[in-house]
């Protein structure tokens, strides 16, 4: 356990990642522009690039990353499974079907986020309803239901892709790969991050105990059913808002809580805020890379998070076995 150094590092990395996102890009607006901006001496172009383009995008990336990491951490507790990720219950599939349907029907692009949100929540309720209708609420049943529903969404996504005219495919594929640069507004993601933290932190100790098993938690005085409902709802909302902001970005929600748990343990009162900070920083950095690696061209940020996430995760897995 290296709690204190980890928390100090996180407190530094978060603002640093945001500053870096403001300071680099495909144009030659750099750190010096930030400096002149602070002294109100920036050129209109510098203001435009830093304040209108990079700032909202960096904040959207930060909020999305924070939400994904929070949702991952919460679902891992809910399912008592450290390998759960925000999409395990089919939320991203539902969101993708909603978003892609709007694109297929040729409706206004402004309808894509609401449709994604409706799809995400619809999937959440469907999985929840099915797991509930089957009787006992057991993590295994929830996971299996989620996996099957997600597979169903996957088939629908393939169907939509094959019915779509070729001209619509680039937008659909980029949406599926996850992409912060879709002119997304950062406020829903940032607001939801705060809301999740404010609601989940008082539940922190109960969550710690829930992580040790549902019956164990009940015997220790946790009202498990209500808590599981709350966690399920919060995690689903968080994922829905994240997916709506930036598409289905993988690995952040899986790797971040897992990595932090190895560093600072599983006390949700530390883990949840730390996950939000690290998830936010990680996605902000990944998005900055996506904008700059082959600038002026862009990569989908989901590609970067996966390329960072796969080796890190394999390393953690390997290390924990050794």
């Amino acid at each position: 356990m290296r709690v204190r150094p980890t928390l100090i590092a996180l407190a530094l990395i978060a603002p640093a990642s945001l500053l870096l996102a403001l300071a680099v890009g495909s144009s030659d607006v750099t750190v010096s522009a930030l400096w002149s901006l602070l002294r109100s001496e920036a050129t209109p172009f510098e203001r435009l690039v830093v304040l209108d383009l990079r700032l909202p995008r960096a904040l959207a990336a930060f909020g999305t990353g924070a939400l994904l990491a929070l949702s991952g951490a919460l679902l891992q507790v809910l399912l008592r499974n450290p390998l759960a990720d925000p999409y395990v219950l089919g939320v991203s599939g539902g969101a993708a079907v909603g978003a892609l349907l709007v694109m297929l029907l040729g409706l206004s692009g402004a309808l894509v986020p609401p449709a994604a949100f409706v799809g995400a929540l619809g999937s959440t309720l469907l999985v929840f309803g099915l797991a509930q209708a089957a009787g006992a609420w057991a993590p295994e049943r929830l996971i299996l239901t989620g996996v099957v529903i997600a597979a169903g969404w996957g088939a629908l996504i393939s169907l939509i892709l094959s019915l779509s005219p070729d001209t619509d495919l680039p937008a659909m594929l980029y949406w599926l790969m996850g992409d912060v640069g879709q002119g997304a507004t950062p406020w829903p993601a940032l607001g939801m991050t705060l809301l999740v933290l404010v609601l989940a932190l008082p539940l922190g100790r109960s969550l710690n105990i829930l992580a040790r098993g549902g019956l164990q938690a009940e015997v220790l005085g946790v009202s498990v059913r209500g808590l599981e409902w709350a966690v399920y709802l919060l995690a689903s909302l968080a994922t829905a808002v994240a997916v709506t902001t930036a598409g289905a970005i993988g690995f952040v929600g899986l790797v971040v809580p897992h990595m932090l748990r190895l560093l600072i343990g599983n006390d949700q009162r530390l883990l949840l805020p730390a996950s939000a900070l690290l998830g936010g920083s990680l996605l902000t950095l990944a998005d900055t890379l996506a904008r700059t690696v082959i600038a002026p061209e862009q990569l989908p940020v989901g590609v970067i998070t996966a390329m960072l996430g796969v080796p890190v995760f394999l390393y953690l897995l390997y290390r924990s076995r050794a």
Binding site: L53, A295, P296, E297, Q298
Partner: peptide, 8 residues
């Protein structure tokens, strides 16, 4: 493209 490349 990155939007700022267009602007630049």
């Amino acid at each position: 493209l990155d939007a700022e490349a267009v602007l630049e």
